[in-house]
Write a protein that binds this DNA or RNA. Sequence first.
DNA 1: GGCCATCCCTAATACGTATTGGTTCCTGGT
DNA 2: ACCAGGAACCAATACGTATTAGGGATGGCC
Lengths: 344, 344
Amino acid sequence: MDIARRVGVSQGTVSLVISGGAASDQVAEKTRRAVLQAAAELGYTVNAAARRLKGGRTRMLGLYTFEPVFPVDQRDFYFPFLLGVEEATARYGYDLLLFSSATDGGTRRIYAGGVNRLKVADGCVLLGRHLHRDDLAALVHEDFPFVFIGRREVPDAELSYVAADYVGATRDMVRTLADRGHRHLAYLKLSGDQEPTRDREAGFRQGLGDVGIPEESSMVHTVDDSGVITGDLLRGWLSTGVTALLVEPSEDDSTIVAVERAAAEAAVRIPEDCSVVLLGDPPLGERARDWTRFSLPREQMGREAVRLLLDLLDNDDGEPRQLNLACTPILGVSIAEPPAGLTS
Amino acid sequence: MDIARRVGVSQGTVSLVISGGAASDQVAEKTRRAVLQAAAELGYTVNAAARRLKGGRTRMLGLYTFEPVFPVDQRDFYFPFLLGVEEATARYGYDLLLFSSATDGGTRRIYAGGVNRLKVADGCVLLGRHLHRDDLAALVHEDFPFVFIGRREVPDAELSYVAADYVGATRDMVRTLADRGHRHLAYLKLSGDQEPTRDREAGFRQGLGDVGIPEESSMVHTVDDSGVITGDLLRGWLSTGVTALLVEPSEDDSTIVAVERAAAEAAVRIPEDCSVVLLGDPPLGERARDWTRFSLPREQMGREAVRLLLDLLDNDDGEPRQLNLACTPILGVSIAEPPAGLTS
DNA sequence: GGCCATCCCTAATACGTATTGGTTCCTGGT
DNA sequence: ACCAGGAACCAATACGTATTAGGGATGGCC
């Protein structure tokens, strides 16, 4: 360190002056000024890499997404999360590392080439639907600190997450429908048995219980991978007495599109002939209907994820942090009272 | 390094195996496998700070913005840059480090507390209007590799950038107006004398020269900090024969808003009484008029910035990389022929 | 047996900082 | 004159990696 040589003190002293807030009062005012001046003259700057090497912490938080964040078609879905994460990260004085490189032949993997790239950061926020369970399990196993946005489960481990309260939000929607007189509901769920699907179904059943509808008079239909719902299928449901649909939105909004198409095909009017509730956020398309739905507090979820992560870093008991945030119900125009004669 | 102890080799050998592509062929296949397996079992990852300190690559590129990227009001302006940067970063197998923390009492500084935080990354893309020249100069001085999005100058140094060709785009707009018969133009520029402003003005004068309009019959007006343009002012211009305005957009779109307000106040119709060209992208507001304007290739600029940066990293001659990208002219409805009797 | 080449690995070092125990020097008190 | 104690600084070390010179072992060749 040439600055030390120039002033004629040791490198340690220079370090005390430059960075030491606490211990720098034990250096003489005169030396301090000399050092600072020399630093200014030489255009000296602290090397962050060295400081981090010494300190252990990198003051970087990672953001890893199982899907690419930036393709435009999903932009508006993922963007609020990113927004919240970024804001909180900045507020706490950290930098945000976007793991965009982690592709392994097209699909994104945490362990590219056998190494866990996330470890360059102090901790990591995870995000995305198409996750690799084994990657996640491995991550838990080597107890790397991370928080998932969205409730996720892995066998034999509790992990930290910030999730939308799908259970409560769905339950409330069932009540809303019941309040309007609906007694026969159909829940259209996605295939795949992911946590969000399970939570919505749990909320559906809770809601039925709360309002005293026997499970037999309602139904659960799984939308298969083709995503097709025919008009005949819809007519079939209505003929069994169903008056309202609760639809789980898929990533590409195919389910809700399929419902609209089926309704058109079967000449079923929404909401006059059939009420429809969207269990989540609506499609991003412009001419979207004003669905009755609930909306995730996505930005807040991002912020809270960071908060939990830092909490995890600072006091590392082995305890997972778990947080469910309420969704905002939005009363759109896609529900009404059941058609006359079908209220019971 | 416990991985070395575990396998029973030296740390140097481990390093050869882990990172050494070139020299790693001089290590026995057997030890190599043993090391790799131990690494996998222990969940080892290289310490980026250490590697960087030693002089190696981190495979991280930084993105530093002089303004916060994420506040929603500027989101749509900065987002395309971010998009392009992210895409290119990922494509080249790098991760993207967002320097969001770099705030020093409200304003964003590169050298917060004397530390050059950017140094943890291999190189950095810079972005933003309110830059600190001295930070930039310091960065050049310690020749840290970076590319600016937008043309920037610092004294006594040439720096790398990817810029929109404001000169050419503005020149073409002058021609477009001249083609329609306009001979008296007014250029409304921002105060502050930043490069984008200077480039537009240079383009303005070039255009005048090209079409043979003497500079005296046109005018340049600087919009002061208040951003106010009165109806009287506008009327004054028109009375001197001005038939078209070229307006430099400000960050908060105040100039173009001010022009509209002044026009309304003075009962001047756009474009019947006065043509208006926007020298850049239009306001983000919904009910925006279809301005005649030009549009920056922002996403492409982001991508190219990354490309130049990597080029800079790979073959480090001291040469700066500079790239100007053409803007796309958009013919909106805000220009017309001059009012009758004023065509000459 | 002596010599050299090859192979595989180790030891040492540098990178730039933060921290700690220790040393020197000075002041003041007895 | 001596010691206590504090002020101001230094030397040494650790952080984790990449790199280089070199060393020990082995084998081949004359």
